[in-house]
Nucleic acid binder design. Sequence first.
DNA 1: GTTAGCACTCTTTGCTCTGGAGTGCTAACA
DNA 2: TGTTAGCACTCCAGAGCAAAGAGTGCTAAC
Lengths: 344, 344
Amino acid sequence: MELNERKLQILQAIVADFIYSAEPVGSRTISRKYDMGLSPATIRNEMSDLEEMGYLTHPHTSAGRVPSDKAYRLYVDQMMRSSELPDERKMMISRSLNETAAELDRTIEKAARLLSEITNLVSFAITPSSSESRLKYINLLPVDERTVVLMIVSDDGQISNTAVKLGCHYTEENLRIMSRVMTHNFMGKTVSDVLTMDIIETLKNDLSALDRLTGAVVPSFMQTLEKMLDVDLYMDGYTNILSMPEYSDVEKARNFLNLLQQKDHITSVLVNRDNGLIITIGDENSELKDCSLITADYRVNGRLVGKLGVIGPTRMRYSEISSVIKYMTDNISKTFEITGDSTE
Amino acid sequence: MELNERKLQILQAIVADFIYSAEPVGSRTISRKYDMGLSPATIRNEMSDLEEMGYLTHPHTSAGRVPSDKAYRLYVDQMMRSSELPDERKMMISRSLNETAAELDRTIEKAARLLSEITNLVSFAITPSSSESRLKYINLLPVDERTVVLMIVSDDGQISNTAVKLGCHYTEENLRIMSRVMTHNFMGKTVSDVLTMDIIETLKNDLSALDRLTGAVVPSFMQTLEKMLDVDLYMDGYTNILSMPEYSDVEKARNFLNLLQQKDHITSVLVNRDNGLIITIGDENSELKDCSLITADYRVNGRLVGKLGVIGPTRMRYSEISSVIKYMTDNISKTFEITGDSTE
DNA sequence: GTTAGCACTCTTTGCTCTGGAGTGCTAACA
DNA sequence: TGTTAGCACTCCAGAGCAAAGAGTGCTAAC
């Protein structure tokens, strides 16, 4: 059977209607609301065909039709026209995001919040992993008798620090030497490179006199580097799902929320998605079968890539939401593209 | 009317039963389950008295009785016997908390998670404000041409850093001078003290040659100090509320969740609570009238005070939950009481 | 190829009825 | 005088049922 122009039109109308109403769409509704000069009976025939082709389903005999995942896929790929955001919304977004533009983490957090407020969906954002960041300084600073602070500054302006509790005493001179040696050895190398090196071995020659200090600091050093490999996950808008007809059943809502709580899982899903504006629908998500995800990436220093997106029922305003996400990620990329450029 | 021994016994039975069942308790239930040699009729009479005295309420004529806030208060103050945690639970808690004992933030986060898992309630924890911490070092470190890192180390081992984007260039020598001058001027002073000083004025003499750098750094310095005054709030176990009969209505659940999302509000409620193990019930909470809160404080460096607690319906296992919270806060206090003591 | 008409299906809503749980009162009992 | 058995009464929850409404699928006519 062929998917002719008229079938497409009808399918589009059904999808559009269902996205807003969340109710199965009947032939009469389409005939009335979307004036295409066809009687309900004709539309019924077409709907029947569309169902046979797998684009529509039927909750029960006397209910209207509901779009299938396949229908949404078609809608997203061929029928959806990208919607331009109204200027006031653009301005609102830019303003909100630029308020905190100095720090990536806070901007990302803000973006997630804003996104869930605008879309009424659950939003999430991940920060880029710093695996490709290059180390710039390593600094050990005294705190008290037995505690020092290990500070790592990387070339993209990220700073990580950890308190290190030593089992021994130290002198400030020793800290200075060790800072210098470590900086000298690791400067310019990426985080992942350093982690594959035999760090103790590398430092051995220069620091033979400082065995105990080295032994105490290196594990913390490695831990901190490992932490830099991790990505942070922000999520927002959990409560929105309680307003969706799809989750009016508390049991379902709880299951979904519990799934979303598994941050490690969500993170890995996000990290493994392709870059660009990506829309995955229903079954296309290995888990989360009843959901759609829209994500887009943003760039930091033209290199590191984080992601921003939403998750919600397959019944989703794909076009509008894509535009919002795209606008936000572009905005963030612009702000953080080149370090030090966006002086206030 | 007098609240005699028998009335107390009956009330205790009703409270205990309702805490577990969440169903209004009838006279027959009490007579059967809590063998006190009284017929349902007698118990009915006593219940009627208790209702008149304000300890019980009556959803409708033919329903059982439900304890009032006043009853819970009495229960907590006089009838509840403090429950000792089983050893395995104690061990589990200690082990979990000590895994990450190096850093306060992560321990607190872990504690909140653990608490919500154990109690099936919404848990929260706030970190202490650093207002009384004394500054130890102030350090400016170069990142790139126009960016430096401002790092503040305080005597309790906390480290705060901020990236500062300068409008001008700098030399490393200038950074060193400025670090030294700032450290010299502010070392040993508390965060709140420094914030009340006229910082520019204080630095003017020593840094007259570095006007532009000072102008760029001081605002960031103040911002960072202000951030140190803030307390962090962790919450966990949101989804638990969807399992409570009190919130089986999605509408109610949503309202409650929305309330909990207002982190500023929750934070201020927590900060303003007294120290020690505090239980507030229903009406005693200005907002959150249908809820009870249990909180306890923990100490860091014998001085700074953070809090850990739960929020849930007034129907709550007060005794057991208090014990868990108490045990956790004691554990945290012990770990962080004296800096540098808990060497691994 | 399109459409009007109609029988049929299924859900939703409102209504009534019934059983069960529980109270409150009264009168009898110890 | 306190306790208890008995009973009428209340209210809710659930079952069953009818009617209304929305929608389909089929057929026959246009």
